[in-house]
Design a protein around this nucleic acid. Structure first.
Length: 450
DNA sequence: GAACATATCT
DNA sequence: GAGATATGTT
């Protein structure tokens, strides 16, 4: 019978504190019978000494108290400090005392003799503690990795719309299962598919709402990344539109031409929508030049419904020139007929393409602490050199934490996180070229949570 | 059924 | 109001 427990108790070290040798030996026998390693100490001071100075790795402390006294609670305090599991085994059972002990960190308060059934399952306390420890550690790591995983997932699965045949390493299991369900249902009619999709979304929403009431962590984990369309990112977006040309501005193509890791078709589509309705303003504009909301009226949208145009380009010439005026560094070179970027107007001698983009130090919250990274990016563009030739792999912005786009990332502790560290699969393979070898991958972009 | 455009939500 | 998500259409 005891052998069944050996697997779980083997190696677990229990310190038994009891000045009654006979009683201690009795309990030690029982513990050893179930596979625990036992060390007996006769006094509290000896126990404390062993805890702090001893080389023995104690997993659990059992204090046998003939009358719970100050020393036993002192030892309890030390055990809590050292993050040890401590149990009280007392001559008398006192509920108030038990509550006090538990309140101060004890795991169990029982009356003697130590019950065989309890001994048999003491390992569960240790396992629980180990699990808790690893979860706390994992939570911190997850908070850091969470968004990276999300981005990773976006790249692999693609807007949550494409289905990967294999299970991916994603953090949001529900979304993964959603995709799996999508696969299971792939032989249904269009209408049925829509209905199921709707139903699943509804269920998912309800589930999330229910869970969010119960747990804060889930709420945080489920928070979606919110891409901030900075001037830089928007400029890159606009340039992609310019490349694709009127009638070919489809989100998918835009995403590919922009070639920003982690940026999804959905995000681009949403942004495209804003731009088409002339509804997007740069962060600077939002801050300093609040303008009345778009003139888009209900009748306008109704008209749009009647005349859906595909692949249309927003009226972005004005936007680009505005940005250029506000921030000359962001001036884009004129697009040549051979679709290769060159600096400035062909007819004028302008300075070389914006030499540097400075990136603000990045702060990433891990638990309650904030870690600063030294983030620096230098981008150089020379006359007649396409973006692609600069080595997009080196300069491509990765998305770390919240949706952050940057050219390079270095942790100040010396760890270097590259794109590979985060297993970011790009939507477009490195080196993929577009008409004229253009790949807009060399602009620093930063974004934040909504 | 993927991708699109637009409406609506957070 | 920006960006995400839902929904209907191609």
């Amino acid at each position: 019978m005891a052998s069944a427990c050996y697997a779980m108790t083997e190696g677990l070290h229990v310190m038994l504190v009891d000045h009654d040798e006979e009683n201690a030996a009795e309990m030690a026998d029982l513990l050893e019978f179930y596979g625990y390693k036992v060390t007996i100490v006769g006094t509290y001071s000896e126990a404390v000494s062993m805890l702090f100075k001893g080389k023995k790795n104690i997993d659990m402390i059992i204090i046998s108290v003939h009358s719970p006294n100050l020393d036993s609670f002192k030892l309890l305090a030390q055990a809590v400090t050292l993050d040890k599991i401590l149990l009280f085994v007392s001559d008398e059972y006192n509920e108030l005392l038990a509550k006090k002990a538990l309140k101060e960190g004890a795991y169990l308060f029982v009356k003697k003799p130590l019950n065989e059934e309890i001994v048999k399952y003491l390992w569960q306390f240790m396992l629980t503690k180990k699990i808790q420890k690893s979860e706390v550690r994992k939570e911190s790591e997850d908070e850091y990795q969470m968004n990276v995983d999300d981005i990773d997932k976006d790249n692999i699965v693609g807007d949550n719309e494409k289905l990967s045949g294999e299970k991916n390493n994603v953090s949001d299991i529900e979304e993964q299962s959603d995709n799996i369900h999508e696969a299971e249902n792939n032989i249904v009619s269009n209408g049925e598919c829509k209905l199921r999709r709707k139903s699943r979304r509804k269920n998912c929403k309800e589930t999330n709402e229910g869970e969010s009431q119960n747990t804060t962590i889930n709420k945080v984990v489920r928070q979606k990344n919110c891409t901030k369309w900075t001037t830089d990112l928007h400029a890159k977006f606009m340039k992609s539109l310019e490349l694709l040309g009127e009638g070919s501005c489809y989100p998918k193509q835009i995403v590919e031409v922009m070639n920003v890791p982690g940026l999804t078709r959905m995000q681009v589509a949403s942004h495209l929508q804003k731009c088409r309705s002339d509804n997007w303003r740069s962060p600077e504009e939002r801050k300093y030049n609040r303008r009345p909301s778009s003139n888009t009226s209900l009748s306008d949208s109704q008209q749009k419904n009647s005349f859906r145009k595909f692949g249309t380009m927003p009226h972005f010439q004005k936007n680009i020139s505005d940005q250029a005026q506000r921030n000359p560094e962001l001036t884009f070179p004129t697009l040549h007929t051979n679709s290769t970027f060159v600096s400035g107007e062909s007819s004028t001698q302008e300075p070389l393409y914006p030499p540097q983009f400075h990136v603000q130090p990045h702060h990433l919250n891990i638990g309650n602490s904030s870690i600063s990274y030294n983030v620096g990016g230098v981008i150089q563009q020379q006359r007649g050199v396409s973006f692609d030739t600069l080595g997009s792999q080196q300069l491509q912005g990765s998305i770390i934490g919240s949706t952050n786009y940057r050219s390079d990332l270095t942790l100040n502790n010396g760890d270097r996180h590259t794109q590979n560290d985060y297993n970011l699969n790009l939507n477009v393979p490195h080196g993929t070229t577009y008409p004229g070898n253009i790949m807009l991958s060399d602009i620093d972009i930063e974004s934040n949570k909504c």
